[in-house]
Design a protein around this nucleic acid. Structure first.
Lengths: 116, 116
DNA sequence: ATTTGACTTGGAGTGCACTCGAAGGGCGAA
DNA sequence: TTCGCCCTTCGAGTGCACTCCAAGTCAAAT
């Protein structure tokens, strides 16, 4: 699949796809006969996972670390799981924080007097 | 209260406090006899609210818009409430998204085989 | 044969939200 | 009175995550 199709399906721009590859987030995307990127379904799944990490606030640097471990093979699975667990805690905290903020927002909205 | 105390209590740096004032997010902080900023309790409450908007992902530009409306007086209360309602929807969506992402993370973590 | 259009690379540019530096003023303690 | 420290303003610098540009290649369409 071409970079445009991959962009379409992943929701990332072609620019971003090339950028991710350049910094090592995506490894070894195949090339066709004239050197154009040729994305496989597996690349799409990886991209989808990366996107999930991004939307949950993981930094590009941490994602690179994760990608590097993944490239190193399955003996790093434990370490990767630990990273994910750590990240999960951050996501849980963020949800808790947002939920709290939502309450304050509700209060502000429902109060009719002068709003701060 | 001095800028350092305000920084301490708001959790923002003195640099950021000056920056927020410069771009109009904070209006008219009092000055003492030698021109130093002198924060009032009300400023602290406003800062706390601003921080809540930031942590929930509101852009500085949108916060400036809100601050501007606030300065214009209480006839803008309706408009401000509308902005807040809109923002509340964004926060709700973000919570929903994160909750979904959390499920995927849980799945990835609990699955023992090779992790993508 | 030429044009069109999508692709390649490397490097430069952008926008956001800070963050810091330089130059200078005021004031209390040694 | 000199030191040290915290403050002021203005403008420049930083880090992150893209985002875009220039120059060139290649293949299909006209």
């Amino acid at each position: 699949m071409t970079i445009q199709e991959a962009a379409q399906r992943s929701g990332l721009s072609a620019h971003t796809l090339r950028y991710y590859e350049r910094i090592g987030l995506i490894h070894s995307v195949g090339r066709d006969h004239n050197g154009h990127r040729d994305y496989a379904e597996e690349d799409l799944r990886w991209l989808e996972f990366l996107t999930r990490l991004r939307t949950t606030g993981m930094s590009i640097a941490d994602m690179c670390r994760y990608a590097e471990l993944r490239r190193m093979g399955k003996h790093t699975a434990g370490e990767r799981r630990e990273l994910l667990k750590l990240h999960r805690e951050r996501v849980r905290s963020k949800i808790a924080e947002l939920t709290e903020d939502l309450k304050v927002l509700d209060y502000k909205i429902n109060r009719n007097g002068d709003m701060a």
